[in-house]
Write a protein that binds this DNA or RNA. Structure first.
Lengths: 255, 255
DNA sequence: ATAGGCTATGACGTAAGGTAAGGGTCAAGA
DNA sequence: TCTTGACCCTTACCTTACGTCATAGCCTAT
């Protein structure tokens, strides 16, 4: 009458042998007999009990509670099921919130990167920019370039235009001054100012040999509804700045 | 610049000190410095990183994965979020199924007791039965009475009739014999037999002060669609038995 | 100097098993 | 009768994300 070995029972019920061992040890499902060699043998009654255990397990009841349900005469099954249902619904609600958060975050992320990568080509021949980008990525690594891009994006359109303009003026003045004394205070001031701007544009850490990790809190907190992105979306020629920064860095290194 | 001790940071971020210890050991969030005494000190940068960690933790990402997200430049955040969303939706689907199963089970359970409560009044004035039931519930507790009802339901109609008949005969014979010696072996035999039957009807444990819990397998498997309840549905006067059992118990107690 | 508050490390426990390690048992074929 | 392969046993460590001690060092105010 006790027909099932662990293997057979496990195959029958679709659980692992280890699970049966565990259930045995914790008293949730004991074999009806043990052979003298210590083998576990289960009968039909145990199969039925296992079915019940699995039923409740499927419902995500913890094993301890299943044991109570099956063994405690005073257990109110209906109440337990209703409680459990409530808990499940709460979990579902939580998941809904999480999914909503993820979706919002995804929208923000996609809008940002999509828009940028397209937008940044604005006014510059496409292949030239791609060349700059590729060059910069080879030199600094993909991640670094993307971080610089993020930094750049954090500036408003106006700020960006201002800096770009000043940078151009400085470059022009430098090329004029270069005909004179390259160590003059005016030249030094120009270089320093130019360096300052580039540092700011690239996140301020480019001289360390690696870009400081720039986590834009905004993108995280969007989902939070407490913060909204405040920065405008400067549509500018990213590649130029990357190139500038790279060149500058190389120059500083070689000095 | 490194202002936060473990306590302060934990208070600030709303996590336990233990959590910070753990994050440190696993490399998820290292303090910026250690004092010579080994105390951890965190700066603003670490606070920011902790915020990020908590953001992803809120989304139910495992810590290992968070570490990858934050440290690996080549990590595709969008992809990860989309994967995670899919996983969450799957979990939600599963919960929906579970809730459905629970609801079906609850309906079945309730239908059963409903049906019974109606059926059991068969042949007896309604208000009388309700009085018995109420009395028994006060004395034994609602749960207990319901368990007795379950036990009664587990007998077949024929069995039930047989026991009822014998019970009536015994009662009659007792009232006849009571005119003689109340300690005679025949009286004792009658009482014993009567007791035996009542015990069986009430689940065999009424003398323990609590009724043995009677699990009907069928009710669980309804939701499973593989099993259907096999027991007949004895339409009998439950209240009488409850009353009998209660009286008997009280008598035994007072002796 | 001592009390009380903060800190450190280490270890154990949780749920539900997975994954060996190391070693018996059993039935069938050679 | 021996061996092989399939099956079985127990013990024990691993997993997640911490909570909860235990023991001990550090720091500061009175």
């Amino acid at each position: 009458m006790d027909n099932y070995s662990v293997k057979k029972l496990s195959a029958l019920a679709g659980v692992s042998v280890r699970t049966l061992h565990l259930y045995d040890k914790m008293g949730l499902l004991k074999p009806s007999v043990r052979t003298e060699a210590g083998y576990r043998l289960y009968g039909e009654k145990e199969l039925l009990r296992l079915q019940q255990v699995l039923f409740y397990r499927e419902l995500d009841f913890p094993l301890k509670e299943i044991q109570i349900i099956l063994d405690d005469p005073a257990f109110d099954l209906v109440l337990a099921l209703e409680e459990h249902k409530k808990a499940l619904l709460a979990r579902k609600e939580r998941i809904n919130t999480l999914v909503g958060t993820i979706e919002k975050t995804l929208v923000t992320l996609k809008n940002k990167t999509m828009l940028r990568v397209e937008d940044l080509y604005d006014g510059i021949p496409r292949e030239k920019i791609e060349a700059y980008r590729t060059e910069a990525m080879t030199k600094w690594g993909k991640q670094t370039v993307m971080e610089v891009e993020d930094t750049l994006r954090s500036f408003s359109k106006e700020e960006m235009e201002l800096m770009k303009k000043e940078l151009n003026e400085l470059t022009e003045r430098l090329s004029t001054l270069m005909t004179g004394d390259p160590a003059s205070t005016e030249v030094q001031a120009c270089i320093a100012r130019r360096y300052q701007i580039i540092l700011r544009l690239t996140g301020g850490k480019i001289e360390m040999g690696k870009l400081e990790y720039f986590r834009k809190l905004g993108e995280l907190y969007v989902a939070d509804n407490r913060y909204t992105p405040v920065n405008g979306l400067p549509s500018m020629e990213l590649a130029l700045f990357i190139k500038e920064a790279t060149d500058h860095y190389v120059k500083m290194q070689s000095q």
